[in-house]
Simulated assay, not measured.
Amino acid sequence: MPDTLSQTFSALADPTRRAMLAHLSRGEASISDLGKPFRKRMSLPAITKHVKVLERAGLITKARRAQQRPCKINPEALKDVANWMEQYRQYWEESFDRLDAYLKTVTANTNEPKTGDTDEHSN
């Protein structure tokens, strides 16, 4: 069984591919449209390779319409990433809640007058 999560994170590690996914979050696009922002610094074959990485990771799908191959985002693949990350979000949230509770007890203890402390000028 392939490690799809590793494949997904590997695909997401590249800023070009993340930009392509951001573009696709607004709707279908052709490979040519996805590559427009990168044409000055990247060849069409390089753009196509990025699209293939996204497709292999399951992040996008390509349809066939006559001569066109429009791409669209596959939200299910991102759902797996979100589910994996959720367990760590919960861990950190619980840790910060415990730290907050501890800091409140420490603060409360430092604000309480100590036993035997009196104000010398109260007479």
Rank of each mutant, 00 (worst) to 15 (best):
S95T: 11
Q87F: 12
T61L: 10
T48R: 05
E120F: 12
C71M: 03
E94K: 13
D33Y: 06
S122G: 07
V81W: 01
P113A: 03
N123G: 11
L44C: 07
N111F: 09
A46I: 14
D33Q: 11
T110W: 05
F38N: 01
Y102L: 11
T107A: 13
L21W: 01
R39Q: 12
E28Q: 09
Y88L: 12
E76G: 15
Q67Y: 06
K62N: 04
H121A: 10
P2D: 07
A13L: 09
T115M: 08
A77C: 04
L24R: 00
R69H: 08
V81D: 00
S95W: 06
S10R: 15
A77E: 00
R64A: 11
D117C: 11
A108K: 06
P37W: 02
V81Q: 01
E93L: 09
S43T: 15
Q90P: 02
L44Y: 08
L21F: 04
T115R: 11
K72E: 07
D100M: 07
E120T: 08
T16K: 07
Y88P: 08
E76Q: 15
N83V: 10
L21V: 02
W84G: 05
P75L: 10
T16L: 10
I31G: 10
Q68R: 15
D119L: 09
R18K: 13
N123I: 11
D119C: 08
K79G: 12
R65V: 13
S30I: 04
K72Y: 09
R17T: 08
L103C: 01
L103F: 02
E28N: 06
E120K: 07
Q68D: 08
G27N: 02
A29Y: 02
G58W: 02
N109L: 10
K52V: 11
T118A: 10
A66R: 13
L34E: 00
A11K: 03
V81N: 00
G58H: 03
F38W: 06
I47K: 04
A63Q: 06
D100F: 05
F96G: 02
P45D: 00
G27S: 02
E28G: 06
K49P: 05
E76A: 15
S43D: 04
K40A: 15
S25T: 07
D14W: 06
A77T: 01
